[in-house]
Design a binder for these strands. Structure first.
Lengths: 178, 178
DNA sequence: CTTCAATTTCAGTTATTTCAGAAATGAAGA
DNA sequence: TCTTCATTTCTGAAATAACTGAAATTGAAG
């Protein structure tokens, strides 16, 4: 356990806050903290280092890293003559956002949509379920369809184009005739 | 405790799924279930009814309703000659999304941004915090600024315009010159 | 095949969140 | 003021999630 440079107050503050933020969005605090640490650290870190910097058990780090990898937001780096795995975070925030959103869509929104669709079909036959209820399910499904298919389209654009569109703000409205 | 029409299988399925969905996004399962119930139910329900339909303690319903009201997504309805409060959900899904997103932005993103900004200032002075770290904080802050200010703009458009833009998909790119 | 460092898995513990029931508060009418 | 009914607050119990340390596994080098 070589001793790592301890975190500066700024780093600490950011990591702690990011951890809290994680919990609010259904992400384990430690997972979010590890990600924050890897995001701001200039060089890749190995699990042991993460463990000692953040004061969490080595095993916990292992699990959390696996979780982060399942989101596709870490790169594993190896150094010659060192069998340890070093990790660094995807740096581009736009890419980070894309990866996380794609994954949440796949894990959460898509299944929700398919449940909604089957509920709608069933509700339509079923006479226990009122037409109003069915309509509300339809509205919800339609909303998710429109928004996610837009996301699918736009997320494939190059970041530059996305950024340019976003920074156009209200201007886009006229140009597009809304 | 008058007995309410029990939930149809479809209704049950939707409510259970919505509850699960909630937990994944950091929202209490019961809170999400109550919201789902109110969203699909054609007429307003009182706390006692919710409690018996979903089989949760009356007190729990009370807390959850307060939570939902703090998001601004419930309307309280009163009936003449009945002192109970009845609740119904905002029906328009676009409006629902707007309300929830506005609130999450206010509660989570805005504070994050202000922490980030102060971290950046401090990092700049501080010689414990590396320039790379500072830059990464900047990138993150910039991303949040661009995306949220775009959201602020667009969320004020009438729903029709938003929907039209979203359904344009890739067409918007050429029209806007990206 | 053996060794050893690194990683992962697992069982038990700890911490956090959720929840029910009791007590307190509030609001309206007698 | 007292009574009654609805709602909210509070507290401890139960359920869930997170975490640790030890043991098991993996995999590379000799």
């Amino acid at each position: 356990m070589k001793d790592n440079k301890p975190l500066s107050p700024v780093e600490q503050r950011f990591i702690l806050h990011w951890g809290e933020m994680g919990t609010q969005w259904g992400i384990n605090r430690t997972v979010a903290q590890i990600h924050a640490l890897l995001y701001i650290t200039p060089k890749p870190l190995d699990a042991e280092a993460i463990s000692s910097i953040l004061n969490v058990a080595r095993s916990n780090v292992s699990t959390s890293l696996k979780e982060l990898q399942s989101w596709g937001i870490l790169r594993r780096v190896n150094q010659l003559g060192d069998k340890r795995d070093y990790f660094e975070s995807v740096q581009d925030v736009w890419e980070l956002f894309r990866l996380i959103t794609n994954e949440r869509k796949k894990r959460e929104i898509d299944p929700t949509l398919s449940i909604l669709r089957s509920c709608i079909v069933e509700a339509n036959q079923d006479d226990q379920t009122s037409p109003q209820t069915e309509e509300r399910l339809r509205n919800l499904a339609e909303f998710l369809e429109v928004t996610t298919s837009w996301y699918d389209t736009v997320s494939k654009w190059p970041t530059k184009s996305i950024r340019r569109m976003l920074t156009m703000g209200d201007k886009i409205r006229r140009r597009v005739g809304l």
